[in-house]
Simulated scan of single mutants.
Amino acid sequence: MIELKSPAEIERMRTTGQFVAQVLSELGELADVGVNLLDLEHHVRNQIRRRGAQSCYWDYSPSFGKGPFRNVVCLSVNDAVLHGLPHDYALRDGDVVSMDLAVGIDGWVADSARTVIVGTPADDDLRLVRATEEALTAGIDAARPGNRLGDVSAAIEGVATGYGYPINTEFGGHGLGRTMHEDPHVPNKGRAGRGLRLRAGMTLALEPWLARTTDRIVFDPDGWTIRSADGSRTAHSEHTVAITDDGPLVLTRRPSTAA
């Protein structure tokens, strides 16, 4: 069942979204050569505690995971792209780091992700990150009343395939609001004009993620961290978006960013 949110409820989600956006901006500034992933995890824990927010990840136990998730942010490095467990690892020059954060404040959730490159970026990595960001922008632009869910998926797919990247369909975007995962599922690949008709009041987390040379994934022994099957580098971009009569409203827009 899809719950349509009122304008007042969307504003409450935007309050949460702005907190998520601010913390992701801080993580982007903190991620540098020599910084440990556990330091980034502890920063997020402190910010959540100070704000009185609730982590959507702590104790999360979906069917695909191995036991409850016991961290508050996903940090995925290089060929890891989703659900990366923060661990004792010092970032190196050129590392590609995907940061994914979802929290609730006063009963309303927001979810966002960004990918940053530590130190000196390689051109191929910049291109990959840019592809996910442009795919996200295209998906957001298609999230309008009267369009269909397939229009959003097709917009994301069009950018990714235009760059020449394959697309995995096992994990994608999703509805959210009172909880982190609600209906509908939003694939990163689809057919325009097909699927659920979009209505004002729907709130979606759109999250294109790509690996450079494969659409296949593997899980680490930790049961959570998802990597490209061939070891190629990856990137992930995500925003929480409200569909309104005036067009898409990005609830997790980061300060001084265009996306």
Results as ranks from 00 to 15, higher is better:
200 A>H: 00
154 A>H: 06
104 G>F: 07
3 E>T: 12
161 T>V: 12
163 Y>W: 10
103 V>I: 08
111 D>H: 15
238 E>F: 02
244 T>I: 10
14 R>K: 12
120 T>A: 11
235 A>S: 10
223 G>N: 09
123 D>R: 14
20 V>G: 07
18 Q>L: 13
7 P>D: 04
46 N>R: 15
127 R>P: 12
118 V>C: 13
151 D>G: 03
212 R>G: 05
110 A>K: 05
95 D>Y: 03
34 G>S: 10
169 T>E: 04
159 V>W: 13
180 M>G: 03
86 P>N: 02
95 D>W: 09
86 P>K: 04
222 D>T: 05
165 Y>I: 02
27 L>D: 13
197 R>M: 07
258 A>E: 15
6 S>Y: 01
66 K>V: 00
117 I>F: 03
243 I>M: 03
193 G>C: 06
137 T>G: 04
70 R>T: 10
147 N>S: 09
61 S>R: 12
35 V>P: 03
199 R>L: 01
102 A>V: 06
7 P>V: 10
124 D>A: 12
142 A>W: 04
43 H>P: 00
93 D>Y: 05
78 N>P: 11
229 A>V: 05
1 M>G: 14
103 V>M: 09
141 D>S: 14
8 A>E: 15
58 W>R: 11
29 E>F: 15
230 D>G: 04
113 A>P: 02
48 I>W: 01
177 G>P: 01
148 R>L: 05
88 D>G: 08
66 K>I: 00
156 I>Q: 14
8 A>Q: 15
15 T>S: 07
91 L>T: 03
44 V>I: 06
158 G>D: 15
49 R>C: 05
